[in-house]
């Protein structure tokens, strides 16, 4: 079974036929070649495949591709400007050492973006809670918190408040 879906991906209008059993992760990596989204476990436990759908961080390995119909999907490839200018969170991860092997980084940055879009001034506890589903085995998280905190402190994140939709599948 296949379904025709229209959605927005990194600002681009998409129209494509997707198999009903495809996950969003499969669609991104294997059909569209967007390998910035990583697979770490395939069962929603590690967060490496995190993307943002309508403002919410979701595990794309658990999210059916057909469910993106009518939605706005952001992957790591769409976060920097078209000219390659990094998003403030990306820049902060570079400067504050939030990256080692880098495999959790795309998911970690997108989970952070979804958090700051919804809550521009999160407390330390709120940051830890928001990122508890994104595993990192290299850094011990300390420089990741520092990277996010620097963005909050500098107020350089352009705040774009997204109201959480209660019927969203990740709730």
């Amino acid at each position: 079974m296949a379904t025709e879906v229209r959605f927005k991906l990194n600002g681009n209008r998409m129209q494509m036929t997707v198999e009903d059993h495809w996950t969003l992760l499969h669609l991104l990596r294997e059909e569209l070649g967007l390998t910035g989204t990583k697979e770490g476990c395939g069962s929603g436990e590690c967060g490496a495949c995190t993307v943002v759908v309508d403002g919410l961080a979701v595990n794309s390995c658990l999210y059916l591709a057909v469910d993106v119909a009518g939605k706005d999907v952001l992957t790591i490839e769409g976060l920097a400007g078209k000219d390659g200018t990094l998003h403030p969170l990306q820049k902060s991860f570079v400067e504050n050492g939030g990256i080692q092997c880098g495999f959790c980084t795309p998911g970690m940055i997108l989970a952070s973006k979804a958090l700051l879009d919804e809550n521009p001034r999160p407390s330390e506890a709120e940051i830890k809670h928001a990122l508890a589903g994104n595993l990192c085995r290299c850094t011990g998280y300390v420089p990741i918190f520092a990277s996010i905190q620097a963005v909050i402190d500098q107020g350089i994140e352009e705040v774009d408040v997204v109201v959480r939709q209660s019927e969203s599948p990740s709730d």
Binding site: G33, G36, I76, V94, G97, I99, G102
Partner: peptide
């Protein structure tokens, strides 16, 4: 001196190609 990692830009932008990204 703490220069940022040489690989940092490619990794934060999702463009670094890991072995698992070869198709």
């Amino acid at each position: 001196v703490s220069i940022p990692r040489a690989d940092a830009y490619m990794k934060v932008s999702g463009r670094e190609k890991y072995a698992s990204d070869y198709y």
